[in-house]
Design a protein around this nucleic acid. Structure first.
Length: 592
DNA sequence: ATAGGGTTAG
């Protein structure tokens, strides 16, 4: 930072212009420029570069700039930078545009965000001033790195250089903060305080909330956007739909779909994909399939959305046949498509098929398994009750299992009575993640199943001491454009008497149809009769009773549970669906 | 020559 002085900059400018004017090889310069313009492969750039060196034009500013931009456009950024920053390079030729070109190239490629930041630091080191075009690139690189402190320091520079009034810079800054761990509040602050905001600013913020799973905030902000009269575009709508999908809010999603029609928002492939994903995740997989079939242009994302949707709703065989149809059409699956495929196998108990797809993925498609793929395999083995095989699988994994995989194992240990094993894994996990509440819930559930009530109480106390609270289970239901929420034993609703009568009736009819309450997941120190009672008051059943009372016979019932659905509610729902002739879709927001 | 989006296992 101490290098740049105004004098040094002046000398540099003068020297650069001298080089330009004394260059008597104008014809060669022109020919190089037009050849560079026509370059379309890296090989040609390399060839041409040899010629540039031979002609001694490597320090010609025009040629250097063109060489740099052509190389980086073709993905040969490292090649260009090795010459630009070699020890005998003429640093007098460095300027803002040259650095912007290089930083942009690195900021756009996924594994080179750090290089972009290095170049930005180098730029300051050489005394080259950034301009308002530099910062969108730099901030984009920060977003990729995801380090809040790095982001804050760049924010400081933006203020120092006075670009904090530029809407493009600020929009990217909002996006950057939203991509950093724990940065969403900073993003919101920049968003709130920016002098002018447009649809891009709102999209960045709404998208930020949606990505983090803060879907209610995302939808709320979209409402605020409409109140403030900012016209959303197709990119805003993608984020809003993604929030709807996450919330399982089918009615809202349908409204968004008609809003898109009404407002004439451009239906890009990506927007159509988001609509399909919303329907698939909200339980209307057939609607998603229909839209998918009618799409004129499909991408891998379109296929994956439907495959994941089918997998989520237990239609594993259809998911697999759709995957095979996709291969038949010559579409190359990516790692996400394989996650969908493997989860389809897992949800439908197709262990052998799953194992074979897992090996095909690497052997035929050259896709290295990621933690998500290993997670699917562990889940698949655990669901089938092969807990020990799952454990062996985890031990042999070439990458560290993450907490999600560990929690899958622990749940399986509890369900399949490997309680000692479950206890020891959970203790390890708590050491690594002391502030994650579901770890304590898992441990206390294991103690409950071991009848270690004292240890269970202690675990709860440890949670309280750390200021963590267990989130109470609740179920939401959308009826006539209103959202009703129920918690276990809820009596706050004005119809509560009718609801409880309905539940009694449901219980009687279910028992007659052969339903046996499964009390094994009631983790309370109470006797069997009370356990049944506790089950009957679960929020899922309340919401279903409410829906049976208030919606026309034969119409589907869709409910959204904030936590995992217990096994008893799962089986009870199947009975209720049959007895009352209603399709019942349960959407769960969390899985552990 | 400048900005923002989607699909991912429990």
């Amino acid at each position: 930072m101490q290098f740049p002085t105004i004098a040094a900059k002046l000398i540099r400018t003068v020297n650069a212009s001298t080089t330009r004017t004394t260059n008597n090889n104008r014809a060669a310069e022109q020919s190089c420029l037009s050849l560079l313009q026509a370059c379309n492969t890296v090989a040609k750039v390399v060839q041409l570069h040899a010629r540039i060196l031979k002609l001694g034009l490597q320090n010609n500013p025009l040629v250097l700039t063109k060489f740099t931009s052509t190389s980086s456009e073709l993905g040969a950024t490292d090649y260009a930078s090795s010459f630009l920053f070699c020890p005998d390079a003429d640093t007098r030729l460095y300027d803002t545009f040259l650095f912007n070109t290089m930083i942009r190239a690195y900021a756009q490629t996924s594994h080179s965000k750090n290089k972009a930041l290095c170049l930005y630091n180098g730029m300051l080191h050489f005394g080259i001033s950034p301009n308002k075009f530099t910062y969108p690139f730099v901030l984009k690189a920060c977003a990729g790195v995801g380090d809040l402190n790095v982001g804050k320091s760049v924010h400081g520079s933006v203020v120092k250089y006075g670009f904090d009034d530029d809407v493009h810079v600020l929009n990217t800054m909002v996006h950057m903060y939203c991509c950093c761990d724990g940065g969403i509040e900073c993003g919101r602050k920049v968003f709130e305080e920016m002098p002018k905001s447009d649809s891009v600013s709102w999209s960045a913020m709404i998208g930020g909330y949606a990505r983090l799973g803060l879907s209610t905030e995302a939808v709320g902000l979209f409402r605020k956007m409409q109140i403030e009269g900012v016209r959303p575009d197709e990119i805003t709508m993608v984020s809003v739909l993604s929030a709807c999908a996450d919330l399982g809010a089918l009615e809202l999603g349908k409204w968004v779909e008609s809003y898109i029609e009404k407002e004439g928002i451009q239906k890009t492939v990506e927007l159509c994909n988001a609509v399909i994903d919303m329907f698939a995740k909200c339980g209307d997989v057939d609607k998603a399939l229909k839209l998918f079939r009618n799409m004129s242009e499909k991408t891998i994302v379109s296929w994956t959305s439907v495959i994941v949707g089918l997998a989520m709703h237990g239609r594993g065989l259809e998911a697999i046949s759709l995957f095979e149809e996709m291969i038949g059409k010559g579409v190359t699956p990516d790692h996400v498509a394989f996650v969908g495929l493997l989860s389809a196998c897992s949800h439908s108990g197709l262990v052998e098929k799953g194992k074979s797809f897992f090996s095909i993925m690497t052997q035929e498609y050259g896709i290295a398994p990621r933690i998500e793929h290993y997670g699917c395999m562990v889940d698949m083995l655990c669901r089938t009750g092969l807990v020990n095989e799952a454990l062996e699988f985890v031990k042999k994994m070439p990458i560290e299992p993450n907490p999600i995989v560990m929690r899958t194992l622990i749940s399986a240990c509890r369900v399949h009575d490997e309680l000692k094993l479950g206890e020891s894994i959970t203790k390890l996990l708590i050491e690594n993640e002391p502030m994650h509440e579901s770890n304590y819930v898992l441990l206390s559930n294991i103690y409950a199943k071991m009848f270690h009530w004292e240890k269970k109480t202690k675990t709860r106390e440890a949670m309280d001491k750390k200021g963590m609270k267990k989130i109470p289970g609740s179920t939401m239901i959308e009826l006539d454009n209103q959202i009703y929420e129920f918690v276990a034993g809820d009596k706050s609703h004005e119809q509560y008497k009718e609801i409880y009568e309905m539940m009694d009736e449901m219980g009687r009819k279910m028992k007659r149809a052969g339903y046996v309450p499964s009390t094994s997941e009631v983790l309370l120190d109470i006797d069997e009769e009370d356990k049944e009672d506790a089950l009957n008051r679960h929020s899922e059943k309340l919401a279903i009773a409410f829906a049976l009372l208030n919606s026309p016979p034969g119409t589907p019932i869709r409910i959204v549970k904030n936590l995992r659905v217990c096994s008893d509610c799962h089986s009870a729902t199947k009975f209720i669906s049959k007895i009352y002739n209603r399709e019942i879709v349960i959407h769960s927001l969390k899985h552990s």
